[in-house]
Lab assay of single mutants.
Amino acid sequence: MFYPNSPQTSPQLTQIPYGQQYAMMQRQIQQPYHPFATTEPQARLYPYHYQGPIQQEQGGFITQQSTAASPQYVQMRVTPVDQSIMSGYPNQTANGSSSSSFNYNIHPQQQQQQQQQQQQLRHHAMPVGSVPLQDDRYRKQLIVNYLAPDVTSTDLHELFSRFGELDGARIIYDKQTNMSKGYGFVYFCHAEDAKEAVERMSGYEFHGKWLKVGYSTNPLNIVPSNSSPYVHAGSRGAAG
């Protein structure tokens, strides 16, 4: 039997160049792979992502010199942007860049009308829970959420009447099932009393439920100042 490094198959040491006398086997001759043993700084910083320098080929596509990437890492192929796409944008300079302001050559009167329309939209648009300043009635009506099913309009009136005089209180019921929808409205005579009720009743436990109280901004629920107070009856038909 002959071994790869046996004296019968191995040459004389004098015939082997210096430095390879003890590297006779194939696994010894093959050098191990060192990912950080390279002179390129990109490979030292990113050993798993770097795959060699990027070269520009004919046709405008950018390719990489090395083989496919590892399945664990996804390499994105980048193509140059066609400058003709950006030619339609206004205020574009000769080098292809555009300024931040756009001039669509709008007539001054049209621009003024658009600004007025935007101001009107901001004036009428009102986020949930906010209180408008032009109508004091919005500051007097509250919406009470997360009410228990057994709470009546009379219970709601008695709960909030300790903060001040009320114009009314009612629970909203479903017309088909005649069941409470879980929320109601309270109408105060003074805005200061309503503000105190919002601050003190939010998070209050009532009939096993934690109440959420806020201003009601729905104009359909506003009680006119010259109208008669609501009837605080315990029956659902009268309260709904």
Rank of each mutant, 00 (worst) to 15 (best):
G237Y: 10
K209E: 02
P32Y: 05
I54D: 13
I62T: 15
P17D: 05
K195L: 14
I172R: 01
T63N: 10
Q15H: 12
S100N: 13
P71C: 07
F160M: 05
Y187V: 02
R77T: 03
K181G: 01
I171E: 00
R139T: 08
A69R: 15
E196C: 12
E40Q: 06
T67C: 10
Q113K: 13
N178F: 12
T79G: 07
D193F: 15
K195M: 12
Q8Y: 04
Y50M: 08
V213M: 02
Q8V: 12
A169C: 08
T79I: 03
N91Y: 06
I62R: 15
S130R: 14
S101H: 08
M201Q: 02
Q109S: 08
K181I: 02
I16D: 08
S66H: 08
S87V: 03
P90S: 07
N221S: 08
L45M: 12
Q26E: 10
D174T: 03
A68G: 05
Y3V: 06
G19W: 12
G96D: 13
A194I: 00
I29N: 13
A125R: 10
L147K: 01
F160I: 00
G52P: 09
S130Y: 10
H49F: 03
Q21T: 07
V151G: 00
Y46M: 14
K212C: 05
Q115D: 03
G19V: 07
A191F: 08
A148P: 04
D193M: 11
T93N: 12
V223C: 03
P32G: 06
S161G: 13
V144K: 01
I29R: 14
S216C: 00
I54Q: 13
T152Y: 05
V131F: 09
Q26K: 15
M201W: 01
G129Q: 06
G240D: 07
H157F: 14
V186C: 11
R77S: 05
T9Y: 04
T177V: 06
L45F: 15
C189N: 09
V128P: 13
H190C: 06
H207A: 14
G60F: 03
S100T: 09
V78Q: 06
T154M: 07
M76C: 10
S225I: 11
S180C: 03
Q65T: 12
V186S: 01
S202G: 08
G184Y: 00
I171Y: 00
V128M: 05
T177S: 07
Q31K: 15
Q51S: 11
E165H: 14
H124F: 05
D167T: 02
R122V: 04
P47H: 08
Y230I: 06
I172V: 02
M179Q: 13
E205A: 06
P149G: 05
R139L: 11
F206C: 03
R77Y: 01
G234R: 09
V151I: 05
G164C: 01
Q42K: 14
G59I: 07
P149C: 05
I171H: 00
Y187E: 00
K212I: 02
Q117E: 06
P224E: 02
F185T: 01
G240R: 07
Q28W: 04
N105M: 04
T217I: 07
H232A: 07
P80R: 12
H157K: 10
N91G: 10
G240L: 06
H207G: 07
L142D: 00
A197K: 00
I222K: 03
G184E: 00
T154N: 07
L142T: 02
R122G: 05
K209M: 02
Y73T: 15
P71A: 05
H207R: 08
F206G: 01
Q109A: 06
Y183C: 01
L211R: 00
S130W: 11
V128T: 11
V131H: 14
S10M: 06
L13T: 13
L45G: 13
Q28G: 12
N95M: 03
P149E: 02
D174K: 03
A43T: 13
R236L: 07
K209T: 02
Y230K: 05
Y138D: 02
A197H: 00
N105C: 05
S180W: 01
Q65A: 07
L147P: 01
E196R: 04
L142P: 00
Y230E: 03
F185P: 01
V78R: 15
Q64W: 02
Q116T: 07
T93C: 13
L159A: 03
P71F: 02
L45Y: 09
H157R: 12
A238Y: 15
G129W: 13
R122M: 04
R162Q: 06
L159I: 09
Q64V: 03
K181C: 02
T67R: 15
Q114Y: 12
Q12L: 07
S100Q: 11
E196W: 15
P53Y: 09
Q30A: 03
P132F: 08
Q83A: 09
A239K: 11
Y3Q: 14
K181A: 02
S10E: 07
Q21L: 02
G240F: 09
E40P: 09
L220D: 00
P4H: 12
T93L: 06
N218Q: 01
S10T: 10
Q141L: 01
F102E: 06
Q115V: 09
H34T: 08
Q65N: 13
V74K: 15
A233M: 13
I222L: 06
S99R: 13
Q116P: 08
F160G: 00
A233G: 08
E165R: 15
P41F: 04
S98T: 08
Q20D: 08
Q64F: 02
V223N: 03
V81E: 13
Q56E: 10
